[in-house]
């Protein structure tokens, strides 16, 4: 897998984790799981987790900037516009804009690709060969 693509996915997953840990709904579940009802204790745990994620994100962004400084800026721009900086392609469809991507993308899985329609970074999973490719 392209190292920049791998870092963008890791960054995405970390930001999902960050979002999750910041949500009240998730923390209610964690409080139930841990049988911890002390609000202060839970808040402390959440703050520590968010701080650990922030440090991890910084590391990835640094690595990403070493590869190409435009990637992170673009990722952030897409994230601000769409709520996420990278999208998955499922059955040939970009899950950000729901338009079909070229069938040639499927054979290029593992490369850093962008949606020709909305521009977002794409993760194209290794897929079965499509009709178009066989022709």
């Amino acid at each position: 897998m392209d190292p920049a693509l791998e870092k963008l996915i890791r960054l995405h997953d970390l930001e999902k984790m960050e979002e999750e840990i910041s949500s009240e709904e998730y923390m209610k579940i964690i409080s139930k799981l841990r049988q911890e009802e002390d609000e202060e204790e839970l808040k402390k745990m959440r703050d520590e987790a968010l701080e650990a994620i922030r440090r991890e994100k910084e590391k990835i962004i640094k690595e990403l900037n070493k590869i190409n400084p435009t990637y992170y800026n673009r990722y952030r721009m897409f994230k601000n516009a769409y709520g996420h900086g990278i999208a998955q392609v499922v059955e040939g469809i970009c899950l950000n804009c729901f338009s079909r991507v070229p069938t040639s993308f499927i054979t290029q899985h593992g490369k850093l690709l962008r949606c020709p329609n909305c521009g977002i970074f794409l993760y194209v999973p290794k897929g079965k060969k499509t009709e178009g490719e066989r022709l």
């Binding site: 996915i9 997953d13 990278i86 999208a87 998955q88 499922v90 993760y123 999973p125």
Partner: peptide, 10 residues
């Protein structure tokens, strides 16, 4: 209860 969300899953 290990859990996570990831871009690579559908």
């Amino acid at each position: 209860i290990p859990h996570a969300r990831s871009l690579v899953l559908d």
